[in-house]
Design a binder for these strands. Sequence first.
DNA 1: CGCTATAGTACGTTTTTTCGTACTAAGTAA
DNA 2: TTACTTAGTACGAAAAAACGTACTATAGCG
Lengths: 130, 130
Amino acid sequence: MNAANQKPTGQAAEELQCPLRYMLNMFGGKWKLPIVCMLAPGTPLRYSSIKRKLGNITNVMLAQSLKDLEASGIVNRKQYNEVPPRVEYCLTKKGKGILPALVKVAGWAVEDMQGEAACGSLCDKCQVTR
Amino acid sequence: MNAANQKPTGQAAEELQCPLRYMLNMFGGKWKLPIVCMLAPGTPLRYSSIKRKLGNITNVMLAQSLKDLEASGIVNRKQYNEVPPRVEYCLTKKGKGILPALVKVAGWAVEDMQGEAACGSLCDKCQVTR
DNA sequence: CGCTATAGTACGTTTTTTCGTACTAAGTAA
DNA sequence: TTACTTAGTACGAAAAAACGTACTATAGCG
C-alpha cells in the first residue's frame, strides 16, 4: 500500500530520526539486551540453551525477542532439520558491531554502581567483557 | 521494614546486577533519553521550554520523567521562588558522565541508519554532538 | 503404544506504560 | 474583576508489554 514511499511518516518517522530512539527500538524492553549479551562471546546458542540461561523468560517472550532481533538484523537464525529440532542463534556482523558501544555503556554503569553491586566481570549473566 | 538489608532481594536484585539493565532502568521508556539529549549542551532549560521542544509530551510524562531522572541523580532541579514559578533543569556531573557512552551508541546507530534517515548532526532534536 | 525432547504457537489475562482532560496557586496586567 | 502565566497534580482510560497455561509436530526409545 505504501510502495513508493519508503520512509515511515508521522510519529513513526519522528521516532526513527533520533539515533538513540532508533537504538531503544531495537534493544529496549526486558529481554533483548540480555539475549545479545549471551550471544556476545560468539558461541552459537540454541533456543533451549538461551532459555535455560535466562532462567525465567517465557516461550512467548523469547521467541518474539529473537524474532525481533532477527528482523533487525542483529541475530542470525540457523535451523537444522533434525528431530527433535535444532535451531542455533548467533550475532550477525551488525550485531557484533554494537558491542563496543554496549561495553562503553556498561562501563559507565559499573562505575556508577560502584559498591552497590560491584561485579568483577561486567555481569555474570551477561557475558560482555571489556 | 527493610532497614538492615540495603540491597533489594529477589527479582529486583537480579535486574540491578546487570549494568545494561541498570542503565535501561534509568534511561528506558519513551522520554528520558530525549530529555537528557536536550540538556546535553549544558544550557539550563525550564520545564515549559523542554515541553515545547519535545512537542507532544504530556505534563504527566514530563513531570514524572524529570522526577525519575532527578531521583537517579542525572538531572538537577533548581527552583526559583517567583511568580509565575520558574524551575530550571540541567545535567548533574553524573548525568554528563554518560554522554560519551551515549555518543558512542548514537554513532553506531547513525552508521547503521545510513541512507535511511541520515542527518548531519546526530539528531536535530536531540543535540548530542560528537 | 506411550513417553521423551525441541522449538516454538495460540489464546487469554495481568501488569506496566502512556495518554487526555481537567484542575491548582500566586501574582501581574488589563 | 477577570484573564494570563508557570509548573506541576489528580483521575481515569487506552495502549503496550509481559505473563501463564496449554498445545503442536516429529522421530527415537522401551
